[in-house]
Design a protein around this nucleic acid. Sequence first.
DNA 1: GCGACAG
DNA 2: ATCTTGTCGC
Length: 231
Amino acid sequence: MTSPFDVSPELLAWDGDVPRARRLQSELAARVRLHDDDGPEPHRVAGVDVGFEEGGAITRAAAVLLDAATMQPLAEVVARLPTRMPYIPGLLSFRELPAVLAALAQLPHVPDLILVDGHGVAHPRGLGIAAHLGVITGLPTIGVAKKILVGTHDAIGPSRGERAPLMHRGRMIGTALRSKDGILPLIVSPGHRVSHATAVERVLACGRGYKLPEPTRLADRLASRRDRRPL
DNA sequence: GCGACAG
DNA sequence: ATCTTGTCGC
């Protein structure tokens, strides 16, 4: 049984060459599928997020597996790896995916869908971290970001569920979605094997009253909690 | 050349 | 992302 998270290193290799990394992104972006699979609804959904320790020297990725129907957590895992590169806008996935893959590989089941903290195709070259993860694993993914990297959108109504398309170079690359009344909108974009409409639908379906959908909200909590200092 | 710039 | 206490609002 080969795990989908056991990917070829060349698909996310970082050697300090920015132009080369960008070329790889463009190549992989051509493999992104923005269509829904026909078949049953996802049974298990995972949420992933990354945090840092030791002043950034250690990258800590957290993955949480949940029952898609109830949003009850089934498993929570964490992976720590030495940080290999700095944050470079547009190249986030090269910095964070190694740890994310290590965390996902520890889950007891392969998820039917993965929600990632970051962008999907709402990226300069169409390959944000969610799209990159989807293409190299072959699994359906959705990007859920808190800020725009590229693109613009019109004003959005104040109620949960209201939205506006995120446009870039005349193309829709994502959706600015009000996930909670009166709160700044989330930026939702397909990562792989999901349409724009379904990406938004799934994020709303995973909502439990908070700004972030449950999968990434729980992963966020695991990835960035400074160890509780009990007395 | 001057900003903008996921996490 | 991370460094950090209190404070405003539901």
